[in-house]
Design a protein around this nucleic acid. Sequence first.
DNA 1: CTGAAAGCGCTTACAG
DNA 2: CTGAAAGCGCTTACAG
Lengths: 362, 362
Amino acid sequence: MKSSTPTGGSGTRIRTGATADRARRPTINDVARLSQVSKKTVSRVINQSPFVSLETRERVEAVIADLGYSPDPQARGLAFRRSFVIGYIYNNPNPQYIVNAQQGILDAARLRGFELMVRPCDPSSPSFLQEVRGFVERQKLFGMIMFPRVSEDEKLVALLRDLGCPYVRVASVSLDDPDCMIVSHDSEGAYAAARHVAALGHRRIALITGPKSFRSAHERRRGYEEGLAAEGLSLAPEYVVEGEYTFESGVARAGELLRMSERPTVICALNDEMAAGVYRAAHEQGLTIPKDLSVVGFDDAPIATRLWPPLTTVLLPIREMGRLAAEALMADGEDAVTDVQSGPKTRISPTLIVRESTASPA
Amino acid sequence: MKSSTPTGGSGTRIRTGATADRARRPTINDVARLSQVSKKTVSRVINQSPFVSLETRERVEAVIADLGYSPDPQARGLAFRRSFVIGYIYNNPNPQYIVNAQQGILDAARLRGFELMVRPCDPSSPSFLQEVRGFVERQKLFGMIMFPRVSEDEKLVALLRDLGCPYVRVASVSLDDPDCMIVSHDSEGAYAAARHVAALGHRRIALITGPKSFRSAHERRRGYEEGLAAEGLSLAPEYVVEGEYTFESGVARAGELLRMSERPTVICALNDEMAAGVYRAAHEQGLTIPKDLSVVGFDDAPIATRLWPPLTTVLLPIREMGRLAAEALMADGEDAVTDVQSGPKTRISPTLIVRESTASPA
DNA sequence: CTGAAAGCGCTTACAG
DNA sequence: CTGAAAGCGCTTACAG
């Protein structure tokens, strides 16, 4: 069976019914002819070169508008040796997270006419780096945007650097040059959550952490430790258990914590999925939230407001971070002068959202 | 402030640190020279033309493998006047749905070396069609894949047809030529759910439908009606209310239903988000599920198993549908002969998943 | 079965 | 400030 593939398909032809004879799109040659200049000058106008007289520029721009001309991305990519396509590779298990990040990137990209190519990836695959390399080189990507967990993969980043592929990393803490980092400062959110819990009077405070391989797990834990320390408290080691950022691990770890002879009065899960698991475990043991047990999450995912009672959690502006990441990436090619003037970047801060899952201990 | 945009950026240069002098990638000329044939013949090999002698083909393929050569997508797109990029436009509010569909498309695309460009859209925007047109034409998309709700937009489909852009639509019921449809047969899932509910002995059966503008809302309702009819039952009009496929609308509609003098013994919501809303409303009125009220959803989203008790619902294999849609699209360019032989397509069927939210009425 | 020429729609490098 | 020539890496159309 023959097939039309990028490296195959002698039979590549479009289904007849769909092949309408469309009017040819205007090209740079049409614009040049109608505005009576060379195509090079049109190219200068398109690329906002300062070396065009005002008069000429206006004439060309009028023709461009008149014709509804827009340059061919493939031709530009071929000649520039660089496309205007942003790559977004992800390996986060949370769909909400993926889509929010993607949405933010698109918010910024669309304003500048960039397109987005997406690609799930698996850093544990032996062909991972090779696949990314092929993706970047073949498509001549303008640049790459990465969110956790893959944004924390130093081998990947080293490859991108080696390939000369610009990138922006989003992570809970800075891992790189500030120009290519968007930092979410997870620890601050955890800090606020810790103080909230302490202020309610909790002393038997349990923590379900994330996998050690995630920086966010460290950062969030650190925030809790520092927040509690600010209140003169500290985490009892027996109340700190490691989860996997999944619902199931939340159910399991919370079940164990709640079966302890002296059970905690509050369980802080380092993401909302695990917090949902805590609800389940509490339910199974006949405990009422927040009367018998307070619960805190992290992320402010949709599940936070679907749960009953609504979950106290920490809001991370994922979409906004996606937008900032894309803007930072697209600003990459700008003049050094304007770079300096680009001013202070928006600083991302997590926000504690207090709902009904937290109360003073009985 | 200058900026590097597809239509701008005289200052477009890559950040110095990132501009490593990378080794030039091998081109078709390198392959031609090393295998001592013309580039045209290399092109034939790449495109699996039958008009190459076995001997020549093998020699060229050896050189390609040796060099790690892969053709430049931009150059091919320019010459072919068609790229190997699939477009995926979406306007579904459910992130889980978006990502699952996207994942399925990517499952199939990656096997054939196609890339995926994504684009959220808003059919109610005045510039909607114009934006899609620009997207399709500029990128010379290989084809487009659409899921609900945008897959049901006939104006959009008419535009694609007009542009000669191949497409595949995923929907709850066939709306087009079978070759460009993946049908989820939602009514069958609803039919099974209805019979399940009837078999449990429910007679006061309420339905929270979806927005009229969604075909799935019609199909799922129809499935319920036919399923109940098969059991000699029918829906009482006062028990049928229109929701908006959102959590909030589920809370509101269920609240009203449960305040009726003779309240229903089961509420069937036409998606899981609204079913989660039913849980909330039941909770607010002190009702226990499934003792006082049974609940049925639709979709089998993650929320279905996060709720307590776990939700009886209908599983729709979104990812699989994405995969089939992409395969159908990529098969578009194949030989007519193989088209005929491509055999019966996998038929998508929804699956009723019975969990603990449904029981016989008290 | 194979190839030389021309072209896809842009940009770079070089002149003026 | 502007342009003619050559080139980016492929394919089509035409020969042989």
